[in-house]
Design a protein around this nucleic acid. Structure first.
Lengths: 205, 205
DNA sequence: AGTGTTGGATACCTCTACTGTCTAACACGG
DNA sequence: CCGTGTTAGACAGTAGAGGTATCCAACACT
């Protein structure tokens, strides 16, 4: 198919598709002539993927590029992918300086007996969160996070279960990415609703 | 204290503080003369709050304003606050059209027996997520989300527990906000680490 | 009186994510 | 083979967000 059909089928404007091509988010089509190129279903799929990551999850174009690159590079190693590709998506976006709370996070990981890379960006996110909340007068230490971590453990089991039974490593890698990244807003939405429900149970007749 | 001291103590530049004043994120100081105003610890606290919401969580300035306004307005009613203030923070940011998956979300809520407002933005987030994932070939229905929802339920209990024993309703409201919003990146970070650990357990020696 | 700091207003800047325009090369019906 | 429409690729332009810089007159401190 040509670019205009790709545009019609994906709902993304031709100019925006060209922009994604320029930015390297979308691989170029197969050139059939000097001013003509062919696109296929892979391009359509990739385009939907890009829109889901930028739209639903709100990732920036450059982050999407990093994630997609990591996906292509480490598709043969699902475990590495979960570390590398997903590590590149900073949960709180953009990096900050490392807080002195890093040691506390290490203590938490130790207590949980988790095998987590020492340089995992998620550690920094936790440290920053602890630091900010304390500066705002909320007394919170790693012990408070422990029960949350136990629930996260069980969430992760659910996540990994959904990758079982897939043969193609590339498909597995992509699904891992989708479940991790796109499910985040959904999980937070569930938490909000659960809070509302719990709050109603406690405070309402 | 004057603006320069506020700047020094908060680590936020004078020009940025002026910008927040202009944008209505920070209430004006007490005027002592035509070109002089006094700021106090409340301003310092508010400034830290703003930086935490924009920095750690990545909220936009306009969203922060909405949240802070809702906080001031409904501080006397913690339950409403959880609905109103937190509802204004779209989990996936910016609104999207409502997907046909809305009915499915309703089914999920029914099955869970949750008391959740029919217009809760979180519902739309769930519907959109289901819709996007399906378009990308991931078979996912509301039954898949059920176990996640059960874990969310328990997370919410932990959240609400931390608001117990606070007397001042305004303090309760603010803490509710902080725990809901600032803990989000932390919970997602825990999930990432738990996934890495679980993946290691399954795939590594 | 002199030096430096404020508040308030306004102009300007940088980055992101697109969008528009242009050109030359095609495709295709008649 | 002519005319109309589409396309690839290059590049300039735009709108919004989130600040930053500059200016000025009015203080404050010494």
């Amino acid at each position: 198919m040509r670019i205009s059909e790709l545009s019609r089928r994906s709902g993304v404007s031709v100019t925006t598709i060209k922009y994604y091509l320029r930015e390297g988010l979308l691989p170029p089509g197969r050139q059939t002539a000097a001013t003509q190129a062919e696109y296929d279903d892979q391009h359509l799929h990739r385009l939907r993927l890009i829109r889901a990551l930028t739209g639903v999850r709100g990732l920036s174009v450059s982050t999407v590029r990093e994630v997609l690159d990591a996906l292509a590079e480490h598709a043969d190693d699902t475990h590495r992918l979960l570390g590398v590709a997903l590590g590149s998506v900073r949960v709180g976006e953009k990096a900050g300086q490392d807080a002195p709370e890093a040691a506390e996070v290490a203590e938490l990981v130790e207590e949980l007996d988790w095998r987590v890379h020492a340089a995992a960006p998620a550690r920094a996110v936790l440290a920053e969160t602890l630091s900010s909340l304390r500066a705002l007068g909320v007394p919170l230490d790693w012990r408070t996070l422990l029960p949350y971590a136990r629930l996260a453990e069980r969430t992760a089991v659910l996540d990994l279960d959904q990758l079982d039974g897939l043969d193609d490593p590339l498909e597995t890698a992509e699904r891992a990415l989708l479940l991790t990244v796109l499910l985040e807003p959904a999980l937070m939405a569930l938490r909000r609703m659960a809070q509302e429900n719990e709050s109603a149970r406690r405070h309402l007749p």
